[in-house]
């Protein structure tokens, strides 16, 4: 699984951090998403999929969604 984020779309809700804190964080200064791990291990895939699905700005993209 490869994760990418669109900083321009990100609205700073932090839903991704609530869903997958090992993979996502937010910048201190403006709350924009910080990708901690672009190729997370398999044990994190469910959480990352949930983060991508619940992002209210559709700012998280996954390649190899399987």
């Amino acid at each position: 699984m490869k994760v990418s984020v669109d900083e321009d779309k990100c609205c700073g809700a932090g839903s991704c951090v609530l869903a997958a804190p090992d993979v996502f964080d937010q910048r201190d200064e403006d709350g924009i998403v910080v990708l901690l791990d672009a190729e997370p291990g398999e044990h994190l895939h469910t959480a990352v999929r949930e983060a991508a699905d619940v992002c209210p700005a559709a700012a998280i993209m996954l390649a190899d969604r399987t």
Binding site: G14, V17, Q26, R27, D28, G31
Partner: peptide, 14 residues
Amino acid sequence: LGWNMPKQARQLRQ
């Protein structure tokens, strides 16, 4: 409510 402090507001939510 966060005013230009999204991360800090979210942390307080938790």
